[in-house]
């Protein structure tokens, strides 16, 4: 539903939100941990920097960091920066002329769904997700048999 770039942006910012200590995280580390090609990830993160969601520092201790506290960045902020707001405003079928006056037959059913998805993503901050994921990761480490699924952040 999102572009690949957008999914990478979400995973990378969730990874940053889950970091225990403050400071900059090297893009190389994110790339390795999430198994996202370095050059591709750098481009995606540059867009987030340009739009003020991340800040960056050059040099040996450099990297990227969230520009605001994780509880103030909504998932929708990230999505709109990378994929735009089209999902929340456009016809579900992408019909150029569909609107309230001349609706396609999905229009009236799609609107409430679109609204729910939009609200869900506006009301959920990065730390809401990161905290829950951290709980699952800890449970997995604690349990002897373990849950065999892949870790959340990292690629399978």
């Amino acid at each position: 539903m999102w572009s690949k770039r957008c999914t990478y942006a979400l995973r990378a910012t969730l990874y940053l939100a889950a970091q225990q200590q403050d400071g900059y995280v090297p893009i190389r580390q994110i790339s390795d941990q999430l198994d996202i090609p370095y050059a591709y990830l750098t481009k995606v993160l540059q867009e987030l920097i340009r739009r003020g969601l991340l800040q960056s520092l050059r040099g040996p201790h450099g990297g990227v960091a969230l520009a605001q506290p994780a509880h103030t960045i909504a998932l929708r902020d990230i999505i709109e920066v990378i994929d735009g707001a089209g999902l929340f405003t456009e016809c579900v079928l992408g019909l150029p002329k569909c609107d309230a006056a001349a609706p396609c037959s999905l229009h009236n059913q799609w609107k409430p769904i679109r609204h729910s998805i939009g609200t869900m993503l506006s009301q959920t901050a990065l730390d809401d997700i990161a905290d829950q994921l951290a709980i699952w990761e800890r449970k997995q480490q604690d349990s002897e048999e373990g849950v065999s699924d892949a870790p959340f952040f990292e690629s399978i």
């Binding site: 969730l14 997700i129 892949a150 959340f152």
Partner: peptide
């Protein structure tokens, strides 16, 4: 798929959404 595209999200370990 998970709405956030998280590789490990599933019924046993659901993400919050």
């Amino acid at each position: 798929q998970c709405i956030l595209g998280l590789p490990g999200c599933g019924n046993r370990k659901p993400c919050p959404l």
